[in-house]
């Protein structure tokens, strides 16, 4: 057998080959589009120019246009609100559920599994479900709120500018909780039981055990879950498309949806690219936190 073939089978050659394919894949399908997107953001690209690879370079014109757009402030604010609100509640609810199911009562694993059903549904389906739940006239949520006396008049979630973003956020929180719960459950399960026992004998109450053992031992998991949560929330598109389409009057418009709307509704690919570039910068920052926290494993 040739030396190359042997190296491919059980030597360093095979490893190199695997790395090469992965890198080539990433470069072709992630790296190049990313670069091209940056290039687009400095060019004037409309529907008629879309067919050619090179376009008229307009410098920072697209950036200026985006920042001066009257919608820009709303979109920035909405994006921050949507992301932080979603992640905050997905995380706390997910963590609470993970702690709950970690108690290992009869059927706990089975129940935990059920929660995944929500997660495997396509975003558009979830959006349609929530459209029903949130419906102003016959929605379950209004019915509940009215019957418990929390509100006196039905809320028109999707068409009221005060509630439209909240409507999508509710759906997104529901959609993201199982993911948070599962990852946090894995982190919880990795904490050895005898640490809790030692802490208990050392005099720690349940609350003290949570703050001195569980939380510090979960630091890297929590960092990873929150980073992934932010990234996934910044990618959330389907729910906006299904529930509010960014409206009414831009009241639920967020960056990712605006980018799509500029590019594929108004066919201003340059400005769509500008928003994408800025989101990439944010995501890179969050990804750096993610990498850091997965590296800092505090295990024995």
């Amino acid at each position: 057998m040739g030396r190359l073939a042997r190296s491919l089978r059980d030597g360093i050659g095979f490893d190199t080959l695997l790395v090469f394919f992965t890198l080539a894949y990433l470069l072709a399908f992630a790296g190049l589009p990313l670069l091209y997107n940056i290039v687009l953001s400095f060019q004037s690209v409309d529907m008629f120019a879309l067919g050619s690879l090179f376009h008229e370079v307009t410098g920072l014109e697209n950036y200026r246009a985006v920042f001066e757009d009257p919608l820009a402030r709303t979109v920035l604010w909405n994006t921050i609100l949507f992301t932080l609100g979603s992640v905050l509640f997905q995380f706390t609810l997910g963590f609470a559920l993970a702690l709950f199911f970690n108690q290992a009562f009869p059927g706990s694993t089975w129940f935990r599994g059920l929660f995944l059903a929500g997660w495997v549904m396509p975003g558009l389906v979830v959006g349609v479900l929530w459209n029903w739940l949130l419906s102003g006239d016959f929605g379950v949520i209004n019915w509940l709120l009215l019957n418990t006396g929390i509100i006196d008049d039905p809320i028109f979630w999707r068409s009221d500018t005060d509630y439209s973003l909240l409507a999508v956020m509710l759906a997104n929180i529901w959609y993201g909780v199982p993911f948070n719960m599962i990852l946090l459950s894995v982190g919880l399960a990795a904490i050895p039981e005898d640490l809790y026992e030692a802490a208990e004998l050392d005099g720690a109450t349940a609350v003290q055990r949570f703050f001195t053992i569980t939380l510090p031992m979960m630091r890297s998991t929590i960092g990873a879950v929150i980073a992934l949560g932010i990234i996934f929330t910044l990618q959330q598109f389907d729910l906006f498309a299904a529930i509010t389409s960014g409206g009414p009057a831009g009241s639920s418009m967020v960056a990712q949806y605006w980018s799509w709307e500029l590019s594929f509704r108004q066919f201003d690919f340059g400005r769509g690219a500008v928003i994408a570039v800025m989101m990439i910068v944010v995501v890179l920052g969050v990804a750096a936190i993610y990498v850091r926290s997965t590296r800092q494993e505090t295990r024995l």
Partner: peptide
């Protein structure tokens, strides 16, 4: 009486040291 109120100290086979 729960363990934390029994005032006993235990050395575990795994040592159960707090890794963090």
């Amino acid at each position: 009486i729960p363990p934390r109120k029994r005032d006993l100290a235990m050395v575990f086979q795994s040592y159960a040291l707090y890794p963090h």
